[in-house]
Amino acid sequence: MSIMVQNLSFSYSTDRKILKDVSLTIAPGEFLLIVGRNGVGKSTFLKLLNGIRKPTSGKVLIDGMDTRENSVASLARKICVTFQNPADQIFAPTVFDEVSFAPRNLKRTDPESIAQKALQLCGLEHHKTSHPYDLPPAERKLLTIASAVASDATYLAFDEPSAGLSSIEQNLLEHVITSLLAEGKGLLVVSHDLPFFFRYATRVVVLENGSLSFSGHAEELMEREGILRRAGLRLPPLVRAKRIISAMEKKREVGGDDVVTL
């Protein structure tokens, strides 16, 4: 039981390949963080996972289901992909209708209580009967996350889930992530927010020019300065501080000057 991406290539047109020969696997209970510059094809990668886009070559298997042979709607039982912009996916007249859309369509047992639980988890219970567009942008973002949680799919994929969240919503998001991982869900997150996600990610992959230029643990990635820079990533402040200190100490040892740049 896992997501298997095998030699996946994809292009919109013949002149530019978005993804070239990408292979990876994700098991339930894992948290895969996908990073890379804006426009490198991270979002396209998510669309290939649930069959919205079909591979140009290679294949994607979701618990054995080939995305080329199964409809997006049937793959949705296994994998739920959430997009970056809430305006592209919110359509129901109330917050509750929005969240219960997936469990109702996927014929889950007791969709109402699933939706209720998802709202609770994301701290949106008090907005249950509100119109989604009356919510401030950050809570609209949480609403899309709650809608994905309510799908109760084995794998949940999110595109920039932390973007635009202030510390209040970020704390809620942390809570959501730890709960989902404890439930044994497989999480895939596309983001450039390394300082926020590195604590949870069991694995990080870096997408660069259509291929994976790195796959490993976050701690390892933080040592690879060239990759970090090219992927537009920033180190968490504490890591940066420690780096600077050790660099200064090194210079002190060799008797160099005190000028240290980041």
Binding site: P237, A241, K242, I244, I245, M248
Partner: peptide, 22 residues
């Protein structure tokens, strides 16, 4: 969101000779 920065500030409390430059 200051958790990370809080840790950084703890470094400052240690007052090692080069923290200001950090």
């Amino acid at each position: 969101p200051v958790d990370d920065w809080r840790e950084v500030l703890k470094l400052r409390e240690r007052r090692s000779p080069h923290t200001e430059r950090v």
